[in-house]
Design a protein around this nucleic acid. Sequence first.
DNA 1: GTTAATGCAAAGCATTTGCACACGT
DNA 2: ACGTGTGCAAATGCTTTGCATTAAC
Lengths: 163, 163
Amino acid sequence: MPEKQQHQQENYISSKVKLMEERCRQNRLSLTVQRRTILENLSSRTDHPTADQIYAAIQDRITGVSRTTVYRVLETFVQLGLAKKISNPEAKARFDADTSRHHHAACVACEKVIDIDAGLIADIDLKAADLDGFDVFDCSVVAVGLCKDCRSKDGGARSFKFN
Amino acid sequence: MPEKQQHQQENYISSKVKLMEERCRQNRLSLTVQRRTILENLSSRTDHPTADQIYAAIQDRITGVSRTTVYRVLETFVQLGLAKKISNPEAKARFDADTSRHHHAACVACEKVIDIDAGLIADIDLKAADLDGFDVFDCSVVAVGLCKDCRSKDGGARSFKFN
DNA sequence: GTTAATGCAAAGCATTTGCACACGT
DNA sequence: ACGTGTGCAAATGCTTTGCATTAAC
């Protein structure tokens, strides 16, 4: 890695860690070695690792970390807005007999999935995007949020606060 | 349900079943009660059920169906292009320290997830869509396909053939 | 000193697999 | 008859939970 790029990378990671420290203080969460190490690892990579891949990667840095901790810490990061969990609200496969192109909105509270009519959203044009040789079979929009019913029940409770 | 709507619904379901029969014959797959019942159930609903929800729903229609069969039949339907599996390529949570809006392309073969720069895709405008009171926190495009590497390995093998 | 976080082992779900039997063709 | 599909039970894999111990504030 060229020197300059490496410096930028280090800056990025340390600013991420600083942000975490700030948000942890705001929410009376402890600053632990595990949280720092996991965030450093996650910020240093762009491959969207699974919890287990992070667990494997930090073994040599902290001996004796448990998988459990990795899962818990990552969940905390998501709630603190420091990381995103992708492609998976509630890790269950859902099926749809409607194979025509349309989009989905998933409610984080009740797990309901509603359809969004494709005609009402401008066509997604992937042509301009750099897909690095990716051959796209299917492509759709996934919105994540709170449905009408759950919205009226709890104002969209976010566990932790941050700006 | 109004009479007319019910007729349309029944037509839709039976045409789905006919399509399945056609594609099963094309691929030397047997026409079984289970396949018919599961497809009828899936086509009659718009709530994107999980395998287990379908399993529960068909209990009174075929006593003694097994969960296993429901999973297997649904998988077959996906391969026959009769149904879609949504929000879940490989049911594993993946994390991303980059919380800025961007999109993802997931490879069905190697499970790799690559980023698509949001700037290169026209902004998704959900305003026109009928979201039925849904409060969207986050919204992104998920593309599913074959990455460059896997594309060169196997030509994008599809298990079954259909038009 | 309190409160919160960690590690361990065990439990919990969703999903898959191996194998014998039953069914569709 | 033959090949496929099904059901069962057990296995697998990811993730969560309860509880005692340890670390952070």
